[in-house]
């Protein structure tokens, strides 16, 4: 299999789907002439023309709402937010219009659209530009939320998200765009709402998604050198959450750590922790541990920033804790 970057994987998914279906268009800031703020849409303007790859002014509420409106009458918009921090300006369009249209219309309308872009902390961008917002979107009935952790997953899941008839929040990461990984040649999709086991193991279950998958696989390598075999489980889609494989894994390992770079309060991590505690209660040999961002706005200072996020050390400590080691 060829190795490509996360960025290239997304670009391929966009291009392949746009080739397949002319109801798809991309709108967002700097997506066309500039070739994408993070170069994810590179070459798409040249290939598909300015009617389908559209530069928008800095008006997230406006162009996200235009996307919802276009989707209501049969187009399949892909709205790129330069980062999900800016989606907060469009949150009314996403929560009140995209997510609820089908419900409010009694099933008369659907909103087949993807809102995608980078999410989560990058490097020293401080509080407004460095936050993982998936829990906010995952809270909302009517939305689907996808957070891929590898180039292969990103491509396969994005193609499914574009073909999905519901509004899908698709969250990437600035610091993952250069991440390389093997991606199958030719056409493939990965279904939404299916959890994937990224590494088999028998001693402990570590749940992670998005950027945290790489960190947790690294931690699993360290644990293996200590004779601990971690099973790494990646839900990939946070809503709807396929908790079956997570619960099955915990029933086997009896121990669970959930890793997320979002805040801990009322979060995807706490939801997974609750479901494991509830559905695998009799199998647990230790309380579920969460490794999340610290419950603070992101500081600019590099050392503070590093320590505000999940680290290899924090993941290893949590694993040791549920195994009652040290």
């Amino acid at each position: 299999m060829p190795e490509i970057t996360f960025r290239e994987a997304i670009n391929q998914a966009l291009a392949e789907e746009m080739e397949r279906d002319d109801s798809i268009f991309i709108v967002g800031e700097e997506v066309a002439k500039y070739q994408g703020a993070y170069k994810v849409t590179q070459g798409l303007l040249q290939r598909f023309g300015e009617d389908r790859v559209i530069d928008a002014p800095i008006s997230e509420s406006g162009f996200t709402g235009v996307g919802v409106g276009a989707a209501m009458v049969g187009l399949r918009p892909i709205v790129e937010v330069m980062t999900f921090n800016f989606s907060l300006v469009a949150i009314d369009q996403i929560i009140n219009n995209a997510a609820k249209m089908r419900h409010m219309s009694g099933g008369q309308l659907k909103v087949p659209m993807v809102i995608r872009g980078p999410n989560g902390p990058a490097h020293q961008l401080a509080a407004t530009h460095s936050q993982a917002l998936e829990s906010i979107f995952a809270h909302i009935p009517g939305l689907k939320v996808v957070v891929p952790g590898t180039p292969k997953d990103a491509k396969g899941l994005l193609k499914s998200a574009i073909r999905d008839d519901n509004p899908v929040i698709f969250m990437e990461s600035e610091v993952m765009y250069g991440l390389k990984g093997e991606v199958p040649e030719g056409e493939y999709t990965i279904p939404l709402g299916k959890t994937d086991v990224k590494r088999k193991g028998k001693d402990i279950t570590i749940v992670a998604y998005g950027k945290m998958v790489s960190l947790v696989l690294q931690a699993a390598g360290t644990l293996a050198s200590e004779g601990i075999e971690a099973e790494v489980v990646d839900p990939m889609t946070l809503r709807p959450l396929d908790d079956g494989p997570i619960v099955e894994s915990v029933k086997k390992t009896n121990r669970c750590v959930v890793v997320s770079e979002a805040w801990p309060f009322a979060s995807v991590a706490s939801e997974i922790g609750y479901r494991v505690s509830s559905k695998a209660f009799d199998y647990l040999d230790a309380p579920v541990e969460l490794v999340t961002a610290e419950d603070v706005p992101m500081p600019y200072n590099k050392t503070l920033e590093h320590n505000a996020l999940p680290t290899l050390e924090k993941v290893l400590n949590a694993a040791h804790s549920v195994l009652y080691k040290k």
């Binding site: 268009f25 009617d51 509420s61 406006g62 162009f63 996200t64 709402g65 235009v66 996307g67 919802v68 409106g69 276009a70 989707a71 209501m72 009458v73 049969g74 187009l75 918009p77 009314d92 369009q93 009140n96 219009n97 249209m101 409010m104 219309s105 309308l109």
Partner: peptide, 23 residues
């Protein structure tokens, strides 16, 4: 196409519907 209850929020929607007609 609705019936929208957040004041002003239907204006981008109507604009998007017109976008589709042009597209």
């Amino acid at each position: 196409l609705g019936g929208h209850a957040i004041v002003g929020a239907q204006v981008p929607l109507g604009t998007g519907i017109a976008f589709k007609a042009k597209y």
